[in-house]
Design a protein around this nucleic acid. Structure first.
Lengths: 172, 172
DNA sequence: GTCTATAGTGCGATAGAC
DNA sequence: GTCTATCGCACTATAGAC
């Protein structure tokens, strides 16, 4: 993170990162599958919270509301991360290759969420659709949270986005 | 496509591709920003159809239905492509890096669709949410179309997925 | 067209923990 | 003595500079 903030992601080589950590390039690649992954490892906690939140949602929640419960559970974690998510997101926003990795991670979250819904008895393709729609809610809320003017409440942004999604899916 | 089908994407080098086309590696990179892009260039037509379809939707369509109209317009094109989309998708499905590129392209479609909705007077963040949800519909329908058992109707799959999405967003 | 930097891999050597 | 982490080095392919 220090190096990425100093010189930017592209101008930081894996050798630079390894040297700063007191290791060699070879060892870096023992821990991270590729250079991008260094910014994305350690996010398994988020997915676990997400999935657990879906499982713990009230049984009579509709699929999308169950996903929303998972998103809010996940949002709890962000409250404890301080400035880190904002800095990290700024780096990602500046690099298309990092955005690609971000998208595939979110896509994995959607797949996990769809699985959690199926556990609740939701059939396909409804489970996958609700999961993807829920992730759309998260993307928009998170984007507002990181790029927005001041310290906003991520939970509230998620709830607002969810209501907004429901509003655009019914005839005007 | 020939080389990718013969040896797989990973085991085909840019030099191989260039040689098969009677060109040099350097010329390949004049046409394609990177190796992956060779499978994704030429898709601008799809996005244009998509956006035009949204603009042409009935004025009283709700945002999501306008997106659906765009998706169906885009689906018209696939009817003319024969076996190509299925072959292409099989190659993409086998390679995570290609999936990343696919996701960022779809994300660009969503951004374009959100723009088209704003042209129709839909405010943010509703426009982006409807666009992302609509793309979710496309992803699921397209996935069924390419991986499904037999020659199915993409239009019908899109309509079904749309109905399914609406169903999972309302209380049970 | 040439030349170079960097990502990423394969393999073997080495050192330390238990 | 075994197991594991790091290292060193050679090598290929992408990608970009000139």
């Amino acid at each position: 993170m220090e190096l990425f903030e100093e010189r930017g992601y592209e101008d930081t080589t894996v050798a630079d990162i390894a040297a700063r950590a007191g290791l060699t390039k070879r060892t870096f690649f023992r821990y991270f599958a590729d250079k991008r992954e260094v910014l994305f490892s350690g996010t398994e906690v988020l997915r676990e919270k997400f999935v657990a939140g879906i499982a713990a949602a009230p049984a009579d929640d509709c699929p999308l509301d169950a996903i929303a419960a998972g998103l809010e559970a996940m949002a709890d974690l962000f409250d404890e991360f301080g400035e880190h998510p904002h800095k990290r997101q700024a780096i990602i926003a500046a690099n298309p290759e990092l955005q690609e990795r971000e998208l595939i991670k979110l896509s994995a979250y959607a797949a996990a969420a769809a699985g959690a819904l199926r556990e609740r008895g939701v059939a396909e393709p409804g489970a996958s659709l609700a999961a993807e729609a829920g992730l759309a809610v998260f993307r928009i809320a998170f984007e507002q949270w990181t790029s927005g003017p001041e310290r906003q409440d991520l939970h509230q942004l998620i709830r607002d986005a969810l209501a907004e999604l429901k509003a655009v899916t019914v005839p005007a």
